[in-house]
Design a protein around this nucleic acid. Sequence first.
DNA 1: TCCGTTAATACTCAATTTGAGTATATATGG
DNA 2: CCATATATACTCAAATTGAGTATTAACGGA
Lengths: 301, 301
Amino acid sequence: MPDKQTHIELIAALTAVTSGVPRVMTVRAGEALPSGPFELGHRSLQSGLREWIGDQTGHPIGYLEQLYTFADRDRSSAGGDEGRTISISYLGLVREQAAPGAGRPGWHGWYEYFPWEDHRDGRPNCLLSIAKGLHAWIIAEPSRREHRQRRTDFAFGLDGSPWNEDLALQRYELLYEAGIVAEAGGKADPATGRPMFADHRRILATGIARLRAKIKYRPVVFELMPENFTLLQLQRTVESLAGLTLHKPNFRRLIDQQELIEETGGMSSETGGRPAKLFRYRHAVLEERALSGSRLPLSRN
Amino acid sequence: MPDKQTHIELIAALTAVTSGVPRVMTVRAGEALPSGPFELGHRSLQSGLREWIGDQTGHPIGYLEQLYTFADRDRSSAGGDEGRTISISYLGLVREQAAPGAGRPGWHGWYEYFPWEDHRDGRPNCLLSIAKGLHAWIIAEPSRREHRQRRTDFAFGLDGSPWNEDLALQRYELLYEAGIVAEAGGKADPATGRPMFADHRRILATGIARLRAKIKYRPVVFELMPENFTLLQLQRTVESLAGLTLHKPNFRRLIDQQELIEETGGMSSETGGRPAKLFRYRHAVLEERALSGSRLPLSRN
DNA sequence: TCCGTTAATACTCAATTTGAGTATATATGG
DNA sequence: CCATATATACTCAAATTGAGTATTAACGGA
């Protein structure tokens, strides 16, 4: 074995929201995330990925954030020992756009891959069969039973725990550990969602969890919105990402406390009710602004 | 050029808190973070790093979290084109311990490298000279003046903006961009802190920012505490990390609302006042628990 | 022994922020 | 002109947070 090369691979979880559905860009008929080698010529990882995405898809990326770097041997795609692959994964946000033409890479809904994550119409039924599978795993090993039970209850909002949308990654990893998900040898079952190549679904879960956490303290949603939008459109976008329904009056109050948006003057009468005011994001003033605050009990001395 | 190898390097920002000072493990007389090549034999990045740290230092790592992966050519240490280095950086937390013996790698205080980050005794004076340097940079380019001013005011809590301890990374990157910091060609000045090799100080800033954000919503402080501790010790540790003083009664209220700790029954009379109850972290019950909640206005339907 | 000092611990109270709900206004399509 | 669908504006109680006060328990000299 003369030349055990290490390959550096960039993987992108690109997300857009169209008509209330958060979608991810895929290749291979929805089975993989777009990825490519990191070329030596690139100035940095980010710029390498940006260039590469610009070429592969027509979509300019507004927002790009590093997710995680993987090199686990036991999860690598090329199982053998002909070198190793380091995968550096990114989350990218793309503005809503017309449906892509034929021949283009496909956009698939998040919740095809994670049906248990969408709670906008209440707890999805697939959670019942998932809970059954998890229970089998919990009782399979008496010595770890209690610990597994606690982790499961916490992650999936069982036995009194509330559902927490931020735990998308923990949930996927628990299903993986329990062998329920197809990538971990589980049997095909619509309740456990559509599998993906290698660890791509895990990367997508990482991206979802990161985005769900981030919309609460940084104004990243606006990277997914068109220039002008109504408050309900904004709310629907956030709801689709969080997989939850929000309280309309309170959502509005929250938004205008932050002073992140301003009226354009225009109105929209798309939806059939009273026409809504159009708003736009106040780019100029607020590029680098934190939303929430300390959560630590400061003393002012 | 036959063999343009890509090197994978692991870099660790290991932190411990001793007697109210957060410290980082360094090598080369405080000029660099410990780092080493990623060997092909390792099962995963994390385990590779754990092994390696275990060998190099006597300290077992309780908590280890990936920070960021860098490959920017213009920040690489070996400036030439003999291949490229990918640096994967980690934040590790180490429990308080007796002072390390001679010959061991050294622990240096965070605030030697970032004197402007410690606000426990009020705004440090070094901020005055830093603000002066930043102002020169702001007015140097009239077309970007307003934008630079806003970013500076926000990051450093100037002109009405409050100081936000979470922005440690933004602050360092601003100083880098402005050429104030020695790594970016700035002149030596105690106010701008002690420089480090290559981009190691940037990695430390990333770790500090991550940890400051994380203590607010995950119980990670306990990774830095001894088995038994008093409430004031806990408070002092949090304060040292955040670089802020906290309001004692409210800190206590916060802590026991979370139900993260329990009394051991013992007392401590170390400090000279009334003896304090000793507490311990409730490992068993709470390994995977989120603290804060949604910040999204849910509807309960 | 008494008194100043240093903490620990226990409360109080007003100001904000949240959660939840109600009321009114303005479109559209029969 | 009315049913329907949404937009927008308020209200109000409950919970959380920020700030401060009071009391208790040790120690170390004078």
